[in-house]
Design a protein around this nucleic acid. Structure first.
Lengths: 248, 248
DNA sequence: CAAAGTTGTCTATTGATCTATACAATCATA
DNA sequence: TATGATTGTATAGATCAATAGACAACTTTG
């Protein structure tokens, strides 16, 4: 037996669960920064080590990872400072639009087309868009960024016959809203949204520049035109560290 | 140099990133099961090892973890079989109520009071309930179950002066809706909901009977009475493996 | 300048993770 | 019943993760 070093740690970490302590601690620190717990700098490494009940070197591993991510900046002799804090609040409503939603929270907001294809609709997609199973659909793979940081990764389906060439319009404008205008859709509404959360896939980890084990918030939804007819069926994956969804 | 064993693995795993290979593979398999990629059983361990580019024992580690979760069941000599669990859809709307929300999806739905206390409101709670900072609030810690399985873990705040003794009423009825009726609140509405996702805390892991590394969907919301005055402020953590949220 | 506080580097040890190989146990089926 | 396919167990070595202690380098403050 040896003397305990201090009071019980505030947040005990799980061991032997396949996630290294330094990564769990990095996730906790990132989250705490998001809630605004730390003003502009982190507590000293020794204080963090006590808080999490681990060795100082383990905390240093977490800090090194967050420095790599651009969240923190450590300065020898001075302390460790917070570089990026904010979590974006993404509103989910009948009139959800990516660019509008982040207005006031980020200066640059744009979508990038990663890939596109025309293919036969699977059952779920056909049902969502009100098409016959196997009908042609245009699939867009997009990445949305805010202030140069990847925020969400979406897979979007349109009726290929009605919206032929929409990939070019989206690529030019970086906006679904603008692309749909060219097809006479001046306005659209979100019919329903299904929200879930899971670990990011390997591909999404790369696109969203996340570290393994990261969580994505997944929204699956259908947008309908003013006449109520389905226009767009999408699955969007948000980096859960960076975004929260707001329903009102 | 030694001969490569097969073609390039479909999904290369990331190494040295703080997440053990077996856990990354467990997450991938769980996700693949969710998409319906495997009919009723997993491919043999050797095939999975080739697919992920790892040793068979590493795959076995992943399978063992998923067996622990109740997702898989391995049978010697026969194979590894999927014990799929359907996800509950929890509706978020102006009239969100736990028991009503899961009607038709689960037979038994009830809430259990784990703990309660009267304490001074922190700034966020006071603001949400429209109280002066430091005013007395009753905090309830509850666990909600559906068909005997823990589904969500909530922290609920009420104005202690207005709703004194609500913990007893909740404990007796297992329902916030019924407890509020005793205080003359015949109806209430959800004003806004903030949705985020994170790794479950150690305490929530235990209460929700989750395995380490599991994800919780977090909803933070305010319920208001018919007159629009705040009644209840809550944070609810749902097991993301078991629940998805539905917004309409 | 001196002291205190903080981050950076080094060495060593222990336990967890991953790989590799071999063989046992069980099941389905020819 | 014999064979092949599959999961279960055992052992060993290599690498990664975590702890521990000591000290260097740098910054701020008295």
């Amino acid at each position: 037996m040896q003397a305990k070093k201090a009071a019980a740690p505030e947040a005990a970490m799980e061991r032997r669960n396949g996630v290294a302590l330094w990564r769990q601690i990095a996730d906790q620190i990132r989250f705490a920064i998001g809630t605004g717990e730390f003003a502009d700098r982190l507590p000293p490494e020794m204080a963090l080590a006590a808080r999490f009940g681990v060795n100082r070197h383990t905390v240093r591993g977490a800090i090194a990872a967050l420095e790599q991510e651009g969240v923190l900046r450590a300065e020898q002799g001075r302390g460790t400072f917070i570089e990026r804090r904010q979590r974006l609040a993404y509103p989910i409503s009948a009139r959800t639009r990516f660019s509008e939603g982040l207005r006031g929270q980020a200066k640059d907001r744009r979508g990038v087309l990663l890939d596109h294809a025309v293919e036969a609709a699977d059952q779920r997609t056909a049902e969502a868009l009100g098409l016959a199973p196997g009908a042609g659909v245009t699939r867009l793979e997009t990445l949305s960024e805010a202030d140069g940081r990847p925020v969400s990764r979406a897979t979007i389906y349109f009726d290929a016959r009605r919206f032929g060439g929409i990939e070019g319009l989206y690529n030019d404008s970086g906006s679904i809203t603008i692309a749909l205008k060219s097809f006479g859709i001046s306005d659209y509404f979100r019919r329903s949204t299904l929200i879930s959360a899971r670990h990011a896939s390997v591909a999404d980890l790369a696109d969203l520049r996340l570290s393994p084990g990261a969580i994505v918030l997944v929204t699956i939804y259908v947008n309908v035109g003013p006449d109520g007819a389905p226009v767009q069926f999408s699955e969007t994956r948000f980096a859960a560290d960076l975004v929260e969804l707001s329903v009102s």
